[in-house]
Every structure is written in structure tokens, then in C-alpha cells.
Amino acid sequence: MDRSLSRHLRRLTLATATACALAASGLLVTEASAGPSTGPVPKAAADHALVGYLHTSFANGSGYTRLSDVPDSWDIIDLAFGEPTSATSGDIRFSLCPRTECPGVESKDEFKAAVKAKQAAGKKVLISIGGQNGQVQLTTTQARDTFVSSVSAIIDEYGLDGLDIDFEGHSLSLNADDTDFKNPKTPSIVNLISAVKTLKSKYGSGFTLTMAPETFFVQLGYQFYGTGKWGGQDPRAGAYLPVIHALRDDLTLLHVQDYNSGPIMGLDNQYHSMGGADFHIAMTDMLLTGFPVAGDTNNVFPALPPEKVAIGMPASTNAGNGHVPTTEVNKSLDCLTKGTNCGSYKTHGTWPGLRGLMTWSINWDRHNSWEFSKNFDGYFG
């Protein structure tokens, strides 16, 4: 679908509309202020957190890394991946990488012991559901209930701390009549929200919930939401927004994947592309400031508190498109947490409480001599 005409028309009005909407909603913040709190922030493992995905069920060119060999730098470890038996079954399965594929893989008992050791050191270990190959569409209440029971079984068997939602591809898509992110109608989205709330209720306040959507499903919602008023747009555009909004009080951390992304329009109504600090600053500013969805000033996605936001980056050039050198990583952090090194993009606030960074992946960071995690440790101390 060619969105160029719609983009051209919207760019003429979004700047004024955004300023008015943010001012009217109280979301426009000063350079020295932080975004508004929208609920209790779960107790953190550390003031600043480093989140990484561990290739647990498969191997690739980065090599297999045992959980016990993951350095203490990592505060939240997402086990990649739990995947469904079929796209619509809701039945999530997880197993360790086969020994034929990963000669150094632990036994199940060794892995469970490593989980306990990480937790004893104050770390969180989560099961990540989805990934590039794990399409999950909870189109029925039966699939919803199966999702809850199967995810619970994984958490209980391995003694995990919670859940990471990494739905990609066609997992989330909005029905044509689903136009308000605050009141979703699409069954796959309504059922996902219900399933996660059930899990949170089952495990209580200590349940760690993170999400790793792609920019297409979040920040693109500033311009496009679902099929649009006149139809024809990609129904996946902005489709994570209702999930994030409904679960914002339950959410521990949102770390959007600022990689493998096309150009995305920021709050300055300019397109921002991967490859430098500018992209990370603009994309994160949108989350910490809030934005009108599809340009509708009466339908503003509220800002998330900085303690619930981390920036998602590839650990190396091998890990994904959009990798930036550590100098650009630090520029992003300087701008968002200190108001320095900002370049041409002017943020709508300064957020010292920004939680930290997420990366794909721990394995790729190891393959790259731990450059990403060592830089994180050096920056935050």
C-alpha cells in the first residue's frame, strides 16, 4: 500500500496539532522535567538496567552461551524464545537448544540451577514469547486460556520471574473498525491484554513484565493507526499501542526495538533513520512525551514514566540493522538523561530516570568481546 500521499497531507498539520494536543493534555514538559507517572513503578533490580536476550532454544553464528556464563552486567535476561505450536493455538512451548545444535548446552537441572543463581544475585530471568518466527494470534478465548496455562507451566517449571512479549510479524493486527487504542475491539489484542492481566494477577506484584515491540507497531502510530479512517493502510500500524496502554500499570519495562526499522516520523515531524544517536533520541522522546495517535489531537497516547522505558539497540553489526558505535549510544543517553550532546533534535524533557538499554543479544555481545555491556557498565558505573 502506498502511504506517500497520506504522509504528505499529514506532515502539513501535525506540528501544530502535536503542540496543541500535548499542551492541552498536560504532556508537554520542560527541559528539566520528567514525564508524568501513570501508575506504580515495580521495584527495580537496579537503578539502571541492562536487558539482553539469551539465545536459549536455538543456535546461530553468535554461538551458544550458557546461562551461568552470562556476566553480572545483565540485570534482566530474556530467554529466547517460547514459541506456539501454531499461530492461533496459544499453546506456548519452550525447550533448551538440542545438543546436536548446541554441543555446550546445559542439562535441564543445570539450567534451573543457573536461574536460581541469577535470581540470588538480584537478576530477573524471563521467558520471551514470540520472536521473528513465533507468530502468536490469540483470536479466541480458548487460545487465550491456553496461552495462560502454557506460559504458567514454563514459568513454574523453570522458576522464572515473568514474561517478555516479543510479538512480531503478523501477531498483532487491528480490525478495520478498531480505531481507538484506549478501547480495543480486535479479539487477538483484547485476549492478549486479558491473558497478561491474568498472569500478573496469578503471580502478584513481583511478576516482571517487559515488551519489545518494533517501531512499526508503536511510534509509527503517530502517523498511522490500523487501516485508517478510509482504509487501505497496513492494519498492523500502531497495533501495540492498545496493549501497552492497557497494561501500563502492570508493565515493568518497555524497550522498543530501535533496529530493523524504516524511517519513522518524530515529534518534530521529520523522518528519522537508523544509524546514529538521532534515531534513538527521537524514538525515545516520543515514548516519554506522548503523542497524538494518527494525528488525532483528541486521542493522545500518554507518556510513559522514564523508569519504565529502555532503549533497544543491536549489540553488534552482526546482530541487526541499525547498530551504532558506543559513542552514539552514549550521545543518546547524554541527551535523554542530561540534556547534553543532543544534536539537531530537541527533546521535550530531560529524564535522569530513564531505565537503561536493551540489546539483541547477549550472545552477539559476547561474540563482539562484550563491547555493548562493558560500555553500559562504564557509562552508569
Rank of each mutant, 00 (worst) to 15 (best):
S68I: 12
I193S: 05
R66N: 06
A176W: 11
V190F: 13
L22D: 05
Y225I: 04
C97Q: 05
W230F: 15
V51C: 04
Y64W: 14
V256Q: 00
D365E: 05
A59E: 12
V324T: 08
G82D: 06
E110I: 09
G343I: 01
T350C: 01
L96R: 08
V243K: 09
P213Y: 10
A153Q: 12
H245V: 09
D250K: 15
Q119L: 07
S95Q: 13
L9W: 15
L220M: 12
K123Q: 11
V51W: 10
K112M: 08
N260D: 00
D47K: 15
A176V: 10
C20I: 15
A34E: 15
S194M: 02
P42A: 07
T350S: 02
T13Y: 15
I76S: 05
H323N: 04
D164V: 07
R366H: 14
T13H: 15
R66L: 04
T141M: 04
I77G: 03
D177H: 13
L304E: 03
S316R: 07
A21S: 06
S62L: 07
L28R: 13
A310K: 01
T140Q: 06
T100H: 12
I264G: 00
S369Q: 14
G343A: 04
P184G: 06
F376G: 04
L79F: 11
D78L: 14
K185H: 10
L241W: 12
T18R: 09
N133M: 11
S128D: 06
A117D: 09
A303Y: 06
I77A: 04
G162L: 02
Q142R: 14
F224H: 10
N321A: 13
V256E: 00
S173P: 02
P71H: 11
N191C: 06
S201F: 09
T340M: 01
Q119K: 12
A32P: 04
L288Y: 10
S62D: 09
N341L: 02
G349R: 10
T198K: 10
R7S: 11
S152I: 09
H8W: 15
D268W: 08
V190G: 04
D250I: 12
A143S: 12
T227M: 04
H280S: 07
F380W: 15
M358I: 10
F279Q: 00
K124F: 11
S73Y: 14
V136R: 05
P305L: 04
E83A: 14
I155R: 02
A176N: 07
E371C: 08
G162I: 05
A277K: 00
S86I: 08
K197A: 04
L354V: 01
Q219T: 07
L126Q: 06
G349K: 08
W360C: 00
V329W: 12
I129P: 01
N133F: 15
M358C: 07
N375A: 13
E307V: 05
F167P: 04
G295L: 02
I244Q: 03
I362M: 01
W74L: 03
F279H: 01
C335Y: 03
T252C: 00
A59K: 15
G169A: 14
S62K: 10
G104M: 10
G162N: 05
I362A: 03
G169V: 15
A117I: 08
A319V: 01
L5H: 15
P187F: 08
F207A: 06
S37F: 14
